[in-house]
């Protein structure tokens, strides 16, 4: 009886984390740079991975990460906490990559990129993910961008098309092409769509 009387309905860890992050976001939105640094530390790994997959170049990806966080700082007062901060940040990162692409006025066409393989090798040697990351890095730009956004980060085709400035049908076709190329490269059987 005593034990059951002491049971308190604490929120679960995820709820507590979300609440803590909401507080941090609010502080950062009011101009607290330490709070924003906390957000940076918490999210930089995911944002960097996204930029790395979109660009295929480590240095360029890191420039995009920096651009993304600076843009996020500027836009933070307008962030609506009803949506996921992570998703919001990913969209900003995608825009940062695309802005860099336009600004550079050069092709992003990358063959199997040494940066990605080197980066992953440092983390875990002989992982099967290494082959897949390299294969993604070797995809043509259009196919890679759609695969990363839709296949890996949960964008809808409508969202991806809007972000990339392409038609929804093109997004679907590029995803199909990306999956076929990856499957062929990795010796997998592509599932029927």
């Amino acid at each position: 009886m005593r034990a059951s009387a002491q049971v308190v309905d604490f929120p679960d860890a995820a709820t507590r984390d979300a609440a803590a992050e909401a507080t941090t976001i609010a502080s950062a939105a009011r101009g607290d740079r330490r709070a924003f640094e906390d957000l940076y530390r918490r999210h930089v790994g995911r944002v960097n991975r996204l930029c790395l997959r979109l660009t295929g170049q480590r240095e360029l990806a890191e420039d995009c990460v920096q651009d993304a966080f600076v843009s996020a700082w500027r836009a933070l007062p307008r962030f609506e906490t009803r949506s996921s901060f992570s998703t919001w940040l990913h969209r900003i990162a995608v825009n940062a990559v695309l802005a860099r692409r336009r600004g550079l006025a050069q092709s992003f066409e990358i063959s199997v990129d040494a940066d990605i393989t080197t980066l992953d090798r440092r983390v875990n040697v002989d992982t099967p993910a290494l082959d897949l990351e390299a294969a993604i890095g070797a995809l043509p730009d259009g196919a890679r961008h759609v695969l990363v956004l839709v296949g890996l980060y949960g964008f809808s085709h409508e969202e991806a098309a809007r972000e990339l400035g392409i038609a929804v049908g093109t997004s679907k076709a590029q995803l199909h092409r990306a999956r076929q190329l990856l499957s062929a490269r990795l010796g997998l059987v592509e599932e029927a769509s």
């Binding site: 995911r46 960097n48 991975r49 990806a61 992953d120 099967p128 993910a129 897949l132």
Partner: peptide
């Protein structure tokens, strides 16, 4: 395979 890819990469 896609789902098993690492989500993070530190700069």
């Amino acid at each position: 395979h896609l789902a098993a890819l690492p989500a993070e990469a530190e700069p």
